[in-house]
């Protein structure tokens, strides 16, 4: 593994919140551990997915990585820089895209927004031109440059925002839900573009999303965060093993029969007329199960369903929930 570009070591963020208690006008202070001791390292040029349910601490982590929030504890370095101490110096080297906010200027045409971005980062003319040209081509922005941002559709604005974040050749790009609310075509275009930026420019990418298709298509490595803690860090395929996920064999029999029984390693989870569903561990082979069924039942047709990554993660988070609630 190459030298770590982003490094977190036991990073914490504790917010103090005042909450109304029972009595009128009395407020009690309590603390919320939004990020509760997270450690990971991302080497230069990697593209990682950072996922978890709402309120898990994803955005708080991103804000600490950009230096907007100061960690309450732990050590954090991006490109060797402590983000909250040298926010402005780091800012020249990072790009940020928030799916739900725009970095563009509402009243200005896209072109003018880019001209301002150029000034902000002091991008040399030639490089600015080349980068803008590439973004315009790949994100299909040509017809939009003269349009004020407020008149752009969500998908157009998102593409405009992504281009704005890349004009200064950032070494790392943080994407916070870049495909939220986009249609299928826009999503595909954004993904293709991100893949290209990552592979050609070697830009390190940290991607936060609720759309797991983004992760499946873009990231080899995924980190799952829940209640401020890292619950998984590894390859996408490893998720299935950890999440105890199951594959499903769907069989169509000649006629309605009682639930299939006696197939080792599999259990019947659903019966609907002549069709039955058998679940078995994702890691196990389907072949012996298929032959066991075919030997003893009048089989007409069959199909195999892979577990959806959503279900895998949902199960992982639920089991975490169960463990937590078991502890007093």
């Amino acid at each position: 593994m190459t030298e770590a570009f982003i490094e977190l070591d036991g990073v914490e963020k504790v917010f103090e919140v005042r909450r109304r208690s029972g009595r009128r006008l009395r407020r009690e202070r309590c603390t919320v551990r939004a990020v509760d001791g997270i450690s990971f390292a991302v080497p230069r040029g990697e593209m990682v997915g950072y996922i978890g349910p709402n309120g898990a601490g994803k955005s708080t982590t991103i804000k600490m990585l950009t230096g907007i929030l100061t960690p309450s504890g732990g050590r954090l370095r991006v490109a060797g820089i402590d983000p909250s101490r040298e926010r402005t110096r780091l800012a020249r080297r990072i790009g940020v895209v928030f799916g739900q906010r725009t970095t563009l200027w509402w009243d200005l045409p896209l072109r003018d927004s880019y001209a301002l971005v150029r000034r902000i980062y002091g991008i040399p003319e030639a490089r600015y031109r080349a980068n803008l040209e590439r973004c315009v081509e790949l994100l299909d922005l040509g017809a939009l440059l003269g349009v004020p941002v407020r008149q752009l559709s969500l998908g157009q604005r998102m593409r405009g925002d992504i281009a704005a974040a890349l004009l200064h050749d950032p070494e790392v790009l943080y994407l916070d839900e870049p495909t939220i609310g986009l249609d299928v075509v826009s999503k595909a275009r954004v993904r293709r573009f991100l893949r290209e930026v990552n592979s050609e420019q070697g830009t390190t990418v940290v991607l936060t999303t609720h759309d797991l298709t983004d992760i499946e298509q873009l990231c080899r490595r995924v980190m799952v965060i829940d209640h401020g803690r890292l619950v998984y860090d590894g390859g996408l395929d490893g998720l299935h093993a950890v999440g105890e996920s199951e594959r499903t064999l769907v069989v169509d029999l000649e006629r309605e029969l009682p639930p299939i029984a006696g197939v080792p390693g599999a259990r019947t989870v659903r019966v609907d007329g002549p069709r039955q569903w058998l679940a078995f561990p994702a890691a196990a082979s389907a072949a012996p199960i298929v032959s066991a069924v075919a030997d003893r039942y009048p089989l007409v047709d069959l199909s195999l369903r892979e577990p959806a990554i959503e279900d895998v993660i949902a199960r992982m988070l639920e089991s975490g929930e169960g463990r937590r609630s078991a502890v007093p």
Binding site: T66, I68, R92, Y121
Partner: peptide
């Protein structure tokens, strides 16, 4: 109020 200030804060300005 909306938190859009975050965008202004991560700019090198």
């Amino acid at each position: 109020r909306t938190g859009d200030i975050a965008i202004d804060l991560y700019r090198p300005a």
